[in-house]
Structures are given as C-alpha cells and as structure tokens.
C-alpha cells in the first residue's frame, strides 16, 4: 500500500495579487515531500505570482499558506531564470555557487573552508567541477544552468524550485538539464517544483501538474490533468494528448475543426 508523503506546503483558499488587484483567486493545493511537480502556464498567467508566494516572497491577500514540515525547516534551493541575473558581474562559476552557502555563513562573516568544499562538491555533483574557474558570463546556457543548480544545491535544500530551467536552450542541452533534474529527484530524493510554459516538455518528467491558465487553476496527477478531455475542456478547444516513442505530446487542434 502506498503511503502518503508528508505535506510540506499547504495553500488553503488563497488569493494572490498586488495591491487591490487579484491575480489568482481561491486556490488550494498541497505540496508533498518527494513530489515532482510542474507549474505550467503561459506568460502572464500568474505562475511567477504563485512561485513568489510558495517561496514566501509574497503574502496572500486572502487565505492561508502553511509550511508544515515539523521535523526540519523548509529550505528552498531556488534556480532563477538566467536572464534575471546581472550577467556583467565578473564572477567565476565557483564564486556563483559559493553564494548558495551565504545563508549558513551569516552576517559579518566570509565563507570558510567548509563552504568552499561544499561549493566544490555541488559543482562536481552537477558535472562541471572542471569549469569552476571559468567566468560565469562566458559559459554556455546549459553550463550556466548547471552552475545555478549547483548553487541551489549548496543551500542544502529540501525543495528545489526551478524557474523556466530550459528557456533559450537547444534540444540537447534541454534534455541534459531535465535529465539532471530528474536524477536529483530520483537519486537524491529532492522535492522538485519546476516552472515552465511548455506543457509537453514538463509532462515527460514530472509526476504532478499545477496548471495555471486565465481563469483556470488545476492541480492533479499527470494522469488526471494530461488527458484530451480535460485539456480540451479547460482550453475550450480541441487539445490532443498522444504518445510518440514513449513521450507525451500535446497538440492543439483547430477550434472549429
């Protein structure tokens, strides 16, 4: 019999927004330990707003957000979109990863030997220890993403949150990064929350989906969400879910076709 994992974060009738404007209304869902969740929706649908609330950067206008891990503190390993970084700073890959240790170093202090060792271990874990002295700005998209994942791992997280991790990458790099994320989930037992606007891509890796679309909010297992009937009803047009060579493919048909 399958046992239910512990709840890490619970949203109860939460409304999120800025000022008096609500972006997402009355949403409820739970994130469990060892989940592998895709947060999917088009740009401007409220993904970032929801992500900010999950990370604790945005307080709800209404409802309750509870963090329920009683044993240990919830620690997020956050991988932001690469475009959001000030890429002109001349940091090496190692210096970027070292930033992940700053929360345990504390104010007034500089990272010591144990933090340096941890940063190197994280770089090795994502397979780019040989790039540690290279300038972050000079790395390829895939290498930068691995550096940022290593930095997130250096925070020693129990939830890894990745914002559009494959944006702007070629197919090979995309697969390589998604395989690495899957490995972190299966081997290292990390809870993963991956934000993306690409339903097809995400559906081939995650176990659960949070679908955010104008006026619609759905949370469920991949099997429940990713069906032709459900997606067609949600988008109010024919959306077909099929499998090609073992991979999910989502195809949008003509509305009056």
């Amino acid at each position: 019999m399958e046992t239910q994992n512990k709840t890490l974060i619970q949203f109860s009738d939460v409304t999120l927004g800025y000022g008096s404007h609500a972006v997402l209304s009355d949403i409820s869902f739970e994130l469990f330990e060892n989940d592998f969740v895709g947060l999917v929706g088009p740009n401007g649908s409220g993904k970032t707003t929801l992500l900010r609330a999950i990370l604790g950067h945005l307080k709800p206008q209404k409802g309750r957000i509870e963090r329920r891990n009683n044993d240990t503190e919830i620690r997020f390993g956050y991988v932001p979109q690469r475009e959001h970084l000030e890429n002109i700073f001349p940091f090496t890959a190692f210096e970027v990863v070292l930033m992940g240790t700053y929360n345990r170093v504390g104010l007034f202090k500089r990272p010591g030997k144990s933090e340096h060792d941890l940063a190197k271990q994280c770089l090795e874990h994502v397979g780019i220890l040989d790039l540690k002295d290279k300038l972050f700005n000079n790395l390829s998209g895939g290498q930068k993403q691995r550096t940022l994942i290593a930095r997130a791992l250096a925070t020693q997280p129990n939830i890894l949150v990745l914002d559009e991790p494959t944006n702007g990458m070629d197919l090979i790099s995309q697969k390589s990064i998604l395989d690495l994320i899957t490995q972190l989930h299966t081997k290292d037992k990390l809870t993963i929350l991956m934000v993306s606007h690409l339903l097809t891509e995400v559906s081939n890796y995650v176990r659960k989906i949070i679908l955010v679309e104008a006026d619609h909010f759905q949370v469920g297992s991949l099997e429940d969400i990713l069906t032709t009937a459900n997606l067609s009803k949600m988008y109010d047009m024919p959306v077909f879910v099929d499998r090609i060579k073992g991979n999910n493919v989502v195809i949008v048909g003509e509305k009056n076709g």
Binding site: L55, H57, F76, Y78, P80, H84, L85, E86, F89, F91, V96, M99, G100, Y102, N103, V105, L107, F108, R110, P111, R151, T155
Partner: peptide, 22 residues
C-alpha cells in the same frame, strides 16, 4: 568591507538572495 558579500549578492541576484532570507 563588512557587508561585502551581501552587497555583491543582492546586486547580482536579488531574487535568490531574498529566497535565502536576505
């Protein structure tokens, strides 16, 4: 000098620094 790492961190990546409690 005291807050060298903090100033550099929030300048480079304010989002991540906020996630770590800065």
């Amino acid at each position: 000098l005291i807050f060298y790492k903090e100033f550099l961190f929030v300048s480079f990546d304010p989002e991540m620094s906020e996630t770590l409690g800065f």
